[in-house]
């Protein structure tokens, strides 16, 4: 690990922002292609995560509206306002700054118009609402993953169901390692031991103690996975692409979904 870090540190400063901007542009182009041109993401019991939750398109909507348009704004909004991706795109697209060395910061656009997150990007403060929406999406994805383990009515496992399982595990890791979620479960409290319901009976005191321990354990647990939030973000992004591509290849008849048992 130390040697990887050392090798990374030896790379020129521009490698990071160029790589991130390239990957994010490619992902955005692919996502737009799915949103505008691919109305169907289902193959037998497998549903592409781009189409979850599956919604019907009301008859009054124009013909060019596709199912992903109605749902994809939630996970995309979650990623666009995510604290990790904010760092990534401020560095990669705005060069504000592109990296931390003095040489890189000399390339940063200068002037008196720097506002950070006080002007347009103040909208990123809405991140927690995208989190709430994403938690609902994650619940649907778990359900659809469970459905994929019943390929022909009975329990079974295919490569496709494993792909969806990997996808939802990584996506759950990304969603629940979110900084806003960490704030929600305990970061907003100064005092865990101060949970007071006013109760004095044995069961009420036990309930208070349970709440205290639950909050602390949840906060500490989320803090652990939050430390790897960037890794969850990238892994879940790539897995999302892999899952969607896998189902497209199945739809096109290029591959078959191998059954394991």
């Amino acid at each position: 690990m130390a040697s990887i870090t050392a090798a990374k540190n030896r790379l020129p400063w521009w490698v990071g922002p160029i790589t991130v901007s390239t990957v994010l542009v490619l992902f955005t182009v692919y996502a737009m292609y799915v949103v505008f041109f691919r109305p169907d993401g289902q193959y037998q019991s497998l549903l592409s995560p781009f189409y979850s939750p599956p919604v019907g398109i009301p008859g009054w909507m124009p013909g060019w509206v596709t199912a992903p348009m109605l749902v994809l704004w939630i996970p995309l909004g979650f990623r666009a306002t995510c604290y990790y991706y904010r760092k990534a795109y401020y560095r990669a697209f705005f060069w504000d700054p592109p990296a931390c060395s003095s040489k890189a910061q000399e390339r940063e656009p200068r002037g008196n118009n720097y506002n950070g997150e006080r002007a347009l990007f103040i909208l990123n403060n809405i991140h927690r609402y995208f989190l709430y929406g994403s938690i609902i999406v994650v619940a649907f994805l778990w359900y659809e993953t469970a459905v994929s383990f019943f390929p022909e009515g009975g329990f079974g496992m295919t490569i496709g169901s494993l792909v969806l399982l990997t996808n939802i595990v990584l996506l759950s890791g990304y969603t629940f390692s979110c900084h806003s979620f960490r704030h929600l479960v305990g970061g907003n409290k100064d005092c865990y031991s101060c949970v007071k319901s006013g109760g004095s009976t044995g069961s009420e005191v036990r309930s208070e103690n349970f709440l205290r321990k639950l909050r602390r354990k949840t906060y500490n647990g989320v803090s652990v996975i939050n430390g790897q939030h960037a890794s969850w973000a990238w892994a879940s992004l790539f897995m999302l692409l892999i899952a969607d591509l896998y189902i497209r290849l199945l739809q096109a008849g290029v591959i078959t979904d191998l059954r394991i048992f």
């Binding site: 904010r86 760092k87 401020y90 931390c100 720097y114």
Partner: peptide, 11 residues
């Protein structure tokens, strides 16, 4: 609000 969380401080 000026901080755009680019993490150079952490680095």
């Amino acid at each position: 609000g000026y901080c755009n969380i680019t993490k150079c401080c952490t680095e």
